[in-house]
């Protein structure tokens, strides 16, 4: 089997599994919406305040629902032995991991980015600003998926690791949050915002290059 056909098949498999287990795929999205709803309720229905907070809320909701989704990234394949079989099959390990990252991003991150449209009615965000937020969220969710792949691979065999995920993921996400915040800030003042978004894209490409290697190492370590 050639590498590209393996890549496509593995992604197809993840989609089929997600189609069977719909609840797992829906839960992070529901969580995302719930976090967004929390803010108007706690802050109060004041429109100007909410629209200032909107982009930050979108990012926080994305990270929190990623923390819900990420522990499942490798857990099932690890437990039922599929991962070990594939690792023995001679396909490069980082390719296996990369296909999982891509399918995870398509299945879990992309719906969240679409759902962030709810910020427009709920937090009275401008549609123009939302389109900038979507750009940062698209790139940022690639980064989150990559770093989260490493974290969830490290924790895949540990029973007590639930709370540790946040501690591993959030400090590493700080740079992307800063650049996303800078882009949103610039867009709010109608200044050019291409520079921070380009840096964000560079960070995403960098992590997409490094993360599969580190993730494969971490998975191999857990297989013993």
């Amino acid at each position: 089997m050639s590498f590209s056909s393996f890549f496509i098949q593995s992604i197809k498999r993840d989609f089929q599994i997600a189609a069977i287990q719909k609840h797992e795929f829906i839960l992070p999205v529901l969580f995302f919406i719930l976090v967004i709803v929390l803010f108007p309720i706690t802050v109060g229905p004041d429109g100007t305040m909410l629209s200032r907070l909107a982009s930050a809320v979108g990012w926080i909701a994305l990270i929190l629902s990623m923390l819900i989704a990420l522990p499942r990234m490798f857990a099932e394949d690890f437990e039922n032995g599929w991962l070990e079989q594939v690792f023995l099959s001679g396909v490069p390990h980082s390719l296996i991991v990369l296909s999982r990252i891509v399918s995870f991003w398509l299945l879990y991150c992309l719906p969240l980015v679409f759902c962030s449209f709810l910020l427009v009615p709920f937090m009275s965000m401008e549609v123009g600003l939302w389109s900038v937020l979507v750009q940062t969220l698209l790139l940022g969710s690639i980064l989150t998926a990559c770093l989260g792949a490493v974290a969830s691979a490290l924790l895949v065999a540990s029973r007590k690791g639930g709370g540790v995920m946040a501690l591993l993921l959030i400090p590493l996400l700080v740079p992307s949050l800063i650049f996303a915040g800078a882009a949103m800030d610039a867009a709010q003042q109608s200044l050019p915002y291409t520079a921070p978004i380009t840096i964000l894209a560079a960070l995403a490409v960098f992590s997409l290059t490094i993360a599969p290697l580190a993730t494969a190492q971490a998975l191999k370590l857990n297989m013993g």
Partner: peptide, 10 residues
Amino acid sequence: GVFALFQSFD
């Protein structure tokens, strides 16, 4: 994080 990760393994 480094220390918590170590602690979370048996």
